[in-house]
Amino acid sequence: MSNNCLHRVRLDHVVWQPQKGKEPVLNNISLEFFEGEFYGMLGPNGAGKTSLVRQILRLQKPDQGAIWLDQENLRAWDRDALARKLAFLPQTIREDVDFTVWDTVAMGREPYRKRFFPLEEKDREVIRQALEMTDCLKLKDKRVSILSGGERQRVILARTIAQDTPWVILDEPVSNLDVRHQIEIMGILKELQEQGKTIIAILHDMNLAAAFCTKIVIMKEGSVYAFGPVQEVLTERNLEEVYGMKFEFLEGRSKNGVYIVPQV
């Protein structure tokens, strides 16, 4: 058995139906994520992207089916061990807490810390690197509560990087950022992928997805509508079907060939 087969996340007929009698939010999803890829997850609002990711993070219990991480049922994992395996970047964090940027990013090291002991030099180095990568080093002594939305999003990314896990799962990592920081953050994620980590990111910008991801998952109404390499999945027909509108594919306008424009 190759290494690829060992390190993976597998969803096996997962159903999640928070309100009985209504349509399930996740409808019988079977899906396999392999190590080393950069997955982009697309789909309209309410398609179940966040719910799917929350299942993988064990923030929600499936009503049917199971999720497997490295051949072991997700439910069998310790929270502590899981936090050394999967890191999550939520859409936002609480802002009324008085922690500094450094303290917040240091929380990413919590799964590795011993009780009653201060941070080790190794941990400090990881934190410093994470701050540097995300362009947050100059913010390190500021309180998170006074940062702008974009700065805060970069700080959460720094915390996620500091967690230093083989799997990095992100819920709209670039939604609050200006265009320069969007490209920079996607570049950082690409860099993490090249270091051997697996990235699963919920995105809304299909051009960013096309430019940086290796695989695309498109969700629609609680099901996986399409899953595979970028060129195969990001097609006019698929997008029209999922979003219910027309798209124009402009040839030769970006490095990967096409530029997708929704038709107004």
């Binding site: 936090a83 939520p90 922690f99 303290d103 929380m107 919590e110």
Partner: peptide
């Protein structure tokens, strides 16, 4: 109580955040 102080910090970021950072 003091032995749980580090975990309580994470808890102050919200329950789900704390879970993802390894807190039961």
């Amino acid at each position: 109580l003091c032995a749980g102080a580090g975990k309580l910090n994470l808890m102050m970021m919200g329950e789900e955040d704390a879970k993802c950072l390894g807190v039961d």
